[in-house]
């Protein structure tokens, strides 16, 4: 059972700021969804390997060669704030 306090903790982990109304709504909706997900507990999966990926692809390597990339100018073109070729952000500490 997820409480409003859990929702507040998860919101912080996800870097979301929720309104009181959203907190109430998500508490209820997440509980509904997880209650539905509880049906998975019926299955014995003790000896089952997890599938993280549908195809048997492992360790894809390529040769370590320099190739053209995105220029500094193009990389900054979408920045909400920039200065002297860098992204600009509010103070960190």
């Amino acid at each position: 059972m997820i409480t409003k306090k859990d929702v507040e903790h998860v919101a912080l982990l996800a870097r979301l700021e929720l309104t009181e109304e959203e907190k109430e709504k998500y508490t209820q909706q997440l509980n509904n969804i997880l209650e539905y997900a509880d049906m998975l507990k019926k299955l014995d999966t003790e000896n089952i390997q997890p599938t993280a990926h549908p195809l048997p692809i492992n360790n894809v390597f390529r040769s370590d060669e320099a190739k053209p990339g995105v220029s500094n100018e193009a990389a900054l073109a979408n920045a909400p704030s920039k200065e002297e070729g860098y992204f600009r952000v509010p103070k960190i500490v």
Partner: peptide, 23 residues
């Protein structure tokens, strides 16, 4: 809100900027 897309106005520090931009 750092490299592209929407950034909320007026956040004083980075964490608040993340949270407000995303929310």
């Amino acid at each position: 809100g750092v490299r592209y897309g929407y950034r909320a106005e007026g956040a004083e520090d980075l964490l608040t900027m993340y949270k407000k931009s995303r929310s």
